[in-house]
Design a protein around this nucleic acid. Structure first.
Length: 238
DNA sequence: TCATTAAATTGTT
DNA sequence: AACAATTTAATGA
């Protein structure tokens, strides 16, 4: 895939590049010029190679994090490293506002799946925007509402669908943001991990995968899943 | 680059 | 839950 061009992490880009970046962000559209300037001023960009951590579980949350380019995997651990859920944040996505608002320690790891450019907006600026910008608040409201909706959708499908449907739905959700760039249609997920995600036994996951494979919706390989029909997975309800 | 070994993942009972 | 078979990753010549 990608040849590693050494760890030569380039220095932070010129300010105007960062400015362009912020200005194009969804949440920046409704900011006044002054607010936008503040946002840019309070943001720092880092370039991270694939495999690097964007943020760590347990650390004090000092930044709101945006994916300027690349792909970040958010890993959520429930107990001591066990049961996990994760989702992908594609280019243009911002996350971490929940922990920032609640002033709690970060509850997940963020891992760059590709070489990525990550924007860190510091807490002080975040607070300032919260206090001053209606547009910013409007964005947060929308984003939080959207997350709430997704959470409900997940809960709903968990109780309404059978085991096979749950596996299909989780996979579809997983591939949703993660699929696009250089991954083809493959995602590295073991059947055991899928078990954690769906609250099913590994054996049952295996069974579900065989069923879904029969229906030509996916192909199961060692340690990874190849999606053949994403739409079919989404609408699978058997 | 290739062979050997260890670790991880899958399929089956 | 436990076992065997298979695949990948790591190691060293």
């Amino acid at each position: 895939m990608q040849k590693k061009s050494a760890n030569a992490t380039p220095p932070c880009p010129a300010g105007d590049e960062l400015a362009t970046l912020i200005a194009q962000a969804n949440w920046a559209r409704n900011l006044t010029p002054d607010e936008l300037a503040q946002a840019i001023d309070g943001t720092q960009e880092k370039r991270l190679p694939a495999g690097a951590y964007v943020c760590h579980k347990g650390e004090a949350v000092e930044h709101w994090i945006g994916v300027a380019a690349g792909l970040v995997k958010i890993c959520n651990y429930s107990f001591e490293g066990k049961a996990m859920s994760f989702s992908g944040i594609p280019t243009g996505g911002w996350f971490g506002e929940g922990s920032l608002l609640k002033n709690e320690l970060r509850r997940y790891d963020g891992l760059a799946l590709q070489d990525s450019r990550i924007a860190y907006l510091n807490r002080k600026t975040f607070q300032w925007l919260l206090d001053h910008s209606i547009g910013f608040n409007r964005f947060l409201l929308t984003q939080l509402n959207e997350r709430l909706g997704q959470a409900f959708a997940t809960i709903e499908s968990q109780s309404l669908l059978g085991p096979d449907g749950r596996v299909a739905r989780v996979l579809a959700g997983l591939f949703n943001p993660v699929l696009y760039p250089g991954f083809g249609a493959q995602l590295k997920v073991s059947q055991e991990e899928l078990g954690y995600l769906t609250n099913l036994s590994r054996q049952r996951v295996n069974q579900a995968l065989q069923l879904l494979a029969e229906k030509k919706l996916l192909k199961a390989a060692y340690g990874r899943i190849e999606i053949l029909d994403l739409e079919g997975l989404r609408s699978f309800s058997g």
